[in-house]
């Protein structure tokens, strides 16, 4: 069975698009990532124009992250205060990133910077998370009697200097749900940092925000997932509206079909996440990020079969 899409102007297989939604929604509920870094290239691969793929994906993420945020909120896993601070930073960073892209485009090397940033960020984040989680799992296995928590696993000796620095910053604020105290300035700054990178790469930034929350803000993994989804929800609402209003590139039918899969996937992911340990979740996410990095690297190294694409998208 096929559906014709009114904005993408192409026909797609119903089981295929439902399956895509389900898988990406599952990852969203499991790890607190929007899944844009996976979904947008997959949509382009099945024939959706790049501009429509990116814009529609943001609307799909609105639905999936609503589903995921509610599920995590019921489990008490959403730190609304932390989410709001990061959101403010992310909004400012997003605006700055868009301006930066404009400058890079004028200089004529925007695409090169975007691709290299993408591969480097994914590669570094994926490798770091993988090694760190693997070590944590090994430590946990060695000390079987003591249950390893996310807090203990992130309290590495390397970070102690950084923690001291963070504690010295002004506007120290207590985030009860996460059980941490940080400078509000630091949280907003980190939000900005992710916002800039997300705008440059044209993605929501969940896969960057999650490691920032785990390693720099030292939040417990399960609160990280819920809070990240909460923040992604608002970012994607803004993006979806702008894409609909300015570019007319949101395909409602495609978004609904993806949502049919992803909202259920997000619920399954949330429940599955409850059964997994924080470090197990991290290592799984790290592996997915590394597979995506490898795929992008291959795409960069192998000559494409078609050397032209429609202007628009990323």
């Amino acid at each position: 069975m096929h559906f014709y899409l009114p904005i993408a102007l192409t026909s797609i297989s119903l089981p295929l698009v439902l399956g895509l939604g389900l898988v990406v929604g599952l990852l969203s509920g499991l790890f607190g990532v929007g899944g844009g870094f996976l979904m947008t290239p997959l949509l382009i691969m099945i024939g959706i124009p790049p501009t429509v793929a990116a814009a529609t994906d943001s609307l799909q993420i609105v639905g999936a992250s609503t589903s995921g945020t509610f599920a995590h909120w019921r489990l008490g896993n959403v730190d609304f205060k932390m989410g709001m601070y990061l959101l403010i930073g992310g909004f400012v960073g997003g605006l700055a990133g868009v301006q930066l892209i404009k400058v890079l485009r004028l200089m004529g090397n925007a695409d090169f910077v975007i691709k290299i940033t993408y591969v480097l960020m994914l590669g570094i984040v994926g490798s770091y998370m993988f090694v760190e989680s693997l070590n944590a799992l090994k430590r946990a296995r060695r000390a079987k009697q003591s249950q390893t928590t996310v807090k203990t696993s992130t309290k590495s000796r390397k970070e102690s200097g950084f923690i001291k620095f963070m504690k010295g910053l002004p506007f120290q604020t207590r985030f009860n749900k996460s059980g941490v105290t940080h400078s509000a300035l630091l949280v907003v700054f980190l939000g900005m940092f992710v916002g800039v990178l997300a705008a440059i790469m044209g993605v929501g930034g969940g896969f960057l925000m999650v490691p920032v929350m785990i390693y720099l803000l030292r939040m417990p993994m399960h609160v990280v997932v819920g809070t990240s989804l909460f923040q992604i929800l608002f970012t994607c609402i803004e993006v979806s509206f702008l894409q609909s209003y300015i570019n007319h590139t949101v395909d409602f039918i495609l978004a609904i079909l993806l949502l049919a899969g992803s909202t259920f996937g997000a619920q399954i992911g949330t429940k599955l996440g409850k059964k997994l340990h924080g470090d197990q979740l991290k290592i799984l996410l790290a592996m997915i990020v590394l597979v995506v990095t490898a795929k992008i690297m291959l795409d960069l190294l192998i000559e494409p079969s078609v050397l032209l694409s429609l202007k628009g998208g990323h």
């Binding site: 609105v62 300015i246 997000a266």
Partner: peptide
């Protein structure tokens, strides 16, 4: 376009909420 955007967002949120 503005109505289309707002309605789409509300439906997406509603769908997510209902499934939840």
């Amino acid at each position: 376009a503005a109505v289309y955007g707002v309605v789409s967002i509300f439906i997406a949120i509603f769908a997510g909420f209902i499934v939840s």
